[in-house]
Structure formats: C-alpha cells, structure tokens
Simulated assay, not measured.
Amino acid sequence: MKKRWVLLGLVCFGAGLLAGRSIKEREHVSPEKALKSIRDMLSEKFTVSGSWIYMKPRDFNKNGLNYTIYHGGVTKRSNKQDTPYEFYVDAHTGTILEFFPSHIENV
C-alpha cells in the first residue's frame, strides 16, 4: 500500500515539473517568432536583405518601465546599398519598443 502512495507521489511530482516548465516556456515569444514577425512587417515597407536576433532575453528600462526584451537587427536594401538597423522587441508580446539605425564605426 505504501509503495502505491510513493509511486503516486513521484508521478504527481513529475507531472508538476513538466507543467511548470511548459508554463515558463509560454511566458516569452520565441526569438525566432519575434524576428520572423518583424521581418514580415518591415518587408512590406522596404527590402530586408538580412536579419539577426540575440536568443537570450535581457532586461531593459524605457521611460521608467521595465521590460524583458530581445535585441536584434535587420539590414535594409535600398539603391544597391545596405543600411543596418537595430531593434528592441518585448519578449512577452513581440511588440517593437525601439527601432533605430545601427551605429557602425568605420575602421
């Protein structure tokens, strides 16, 4: 009888761990999904010739509000020239918080 209770306890513990991990994973939009969404949206306005995104979210403060963000970038192709831009996207909603030209130093 005790073995059944121990086994039942272990099964419930395992199910709780799996459920907790599943919920934790759903808290963030995947970086791939965020990047695809941004590329698709920007492709309607101009030609996107490249893109990248950091896979690990980080903390960001804007106007006194704290966000968890992904940092990424796209390259705009126009008149045979590439212009790089960067963005910060909210990791929870996929909303672009900032979009700005990259600061590339000529070396």
Rank of each mutant, 00 (worst) to 15 (best):
R21A: 07
K56D: 14
E27V: 10
S78N: 09
L42Q: 14
K76L: 09
E98F: 07
P101Q: 08
V29A: 02
Y85Q: 00
Y85I: 01
K80C: 08
P57N: 06
E105Q: 13
I53Q: 10
G14S: 14
H92L: 11
A15K: 05
T93N: 01
D90R: 03
P101M: 02
G94P: 07
D40T: 14
L35T: 01
E32Y: 13
L18Y: 09
E86Y: 06
I69A: 04
I104A: 09
T95M: 13
L35D: 06
N106A: 15
G72M: 10
L7Q: 09
K45Y: 13
T68Q: 11
E27W: 03
Y88P: 00
P101A: 04
N63H: 10
D90W: 01
G50N: 15
A15G: 00
T93R: 08
V89F: 06
S51E: 15
V6W: 09
M1P: 12
F60S: 08
G73S: 06
V107R: 14
W52Y: 15
D90Q: 04
K76S: 00
V74Q: 05
K33V: 09
K76E: 09
I23M: 03
M41S: 13
Q81S: 13
M41H: 14
V29R: 09
A19W: 07
V89N: 04
R77M: 11
L97V: 06
F100K: 10
Y85L: 00
K80R: 12
F13H: 01
N79T: 02
S30W: 01
L10M: 12
N63P: 04
K56C: 08
G20N: 01
G50Q: 12
K62G: 02
P31V: 01
G20E: 00
L8I: 10
A34S: 05
A34E: 00
Y85V: 00
S22C: 00
Y54I: 14
Y70A: 07
S78K: 11
